[in-house]
């Protein structure tokens, strides 16, 4: 009975996510249509004759009504065809593949460092709350968040690439690179991202657990003679999972979607840089494709957070 209810709730979340993604695709498409400028004009340049422009428009289907163009685009996307980039006439899906993988690799490395570290620091801050350790952790985390990522990035380059020469200043990666070399190449951007997202996750972990620590069952645990860390780990943590997962997912989304600046600083061939390059070239199909992928990542991760929150709730898992 419980599992049927859970499955229904999860199915609802999934359906909602898909629906949302379609709504976002409409917004992205509409947004790029509103942008001033004409695709044909930007391909052919200022010197193009009216006849040539008209021919290209017909060829690209630009004269069709917007909704037909939307469904044509959507149909392509659903079959894995994002169209061709206007600027260099290359297949977008193909170019995206490698870049998406690079971005996910960088985000994954940053997540592997930052998520456990943030939760551990959050637990420590609760255990020694209002003491020196708590304040030191909070101070460090807040300082690292307050500094803009380009500043942290250049600072890291100055010390670790220029002075100490441990890591390269620009994170060039290529297909034939070994895993170890790849890790070394992305070490600095990964650390930069970690410092940016750490504080938020750590502070939220601390707040979520402290909130739970007010509960009567924490007093029960104290009166059983459990140690402070056992109380936090066994009794507070399981009830703080949902809010913590929520903030972790938001930050994971940021690691993938918000890396634009970091990728530019470290000249890393990921999605962010790809997007920035093509925005400046007014390459609408690429912007649409990247926007849609970012939206999918965002919605997907938030959906996971929702589903974890459902699964973490014993009242839903085990109804009366």
């Amino acid at each position: 009975m419980g599992s049927a209810l859970i499955l229904r709730l999860i199915a609802q979340r999934l359906a909602l996510g898909v629906l949302l993604l379609f709504a976002v695709s409409v917004l992205i498409f509409a947004g790029t249509q509103i942008l001033p400028g004409d695709v044909a004009q930007s391909i052919l340049g200022q010197a193009a004759t009216p006849q040539a422009l008209e021919n290209l428009r017909r060829e690209l289907g630009l004269n069709d009504p917007a909704y037909i163009r939307y469904f044509r685009w959507l149909g392509g996307v659903l079959t894995g065809d994002f169209g061709t980039a206007l600027s260099n006439r290359r297949d977008i899906a193909e170019a995206l593949g490698g870049r998406l993988w690079n971005t996910l690799f960088l985000a994954g490395c940053a997540a592997v460092i930052s998520v456990p570290l943030a939760i551990l620091l959050g637990l420590l801050a609760v255990r020694y709350r209002n003491g020196v350790i708590d304040k030191a952790i909070s101070g460090f985390a807040l300082a690292s968040t307050s500094l803009p990522e380009f500043f942290i990035g250049y600072l890291l380059i100055l010390f670790f690439a220029v002075e100490l020469q441990w890591f390269p200043a620009s994170s060039t990666v290529f297909d034939t690179m070994s895993f170890g070399a790849r890790l070394q190449a992305i070490a600095l951007p990964a650390i930069t991202l970690t410092l940016v997202v750490l504080a938020h996750m750590m502070r939220m972990t601390r707040a979520a657990i402290l909130n739970v620590m007010q509960s009567a069952y924490i007093e029960t645990a104290e009166l059983k003679g459990l140690s402070a860390f056992d109380i936090i780990r066994r009794h507070a943590m399981p009830n703080a999972v949902a809010p913590i997962v929520n903030v972790v997912m938001l930050n994971l989304a940021y690691l993938i979607v918000g890396v634009v600046v970091v990728e530019v600083i470290f000249v890393y061939p990921g999605m962010g840089q790809y997007l920035v390059d093509h925005v400046s070239k007014r390459d609408v199909p690429v912007v649409q494709a990247v926007g849609l992928i970012f939206a999918a990542v965002y919605i997907g991760l938030n959906m996971i957070a929702d589903i974890v929150a459902i699964l973490a709730n014993p009242r839903l898992r085990h109804p009366k």
Partner: peptide
């Protein structure tokens, strides 16, 4: 009702 941990 409040003194038992809902998660266990």
């Amino acid at each position: 009702a409040a003194a038992f941990n809902p998660a266990h």
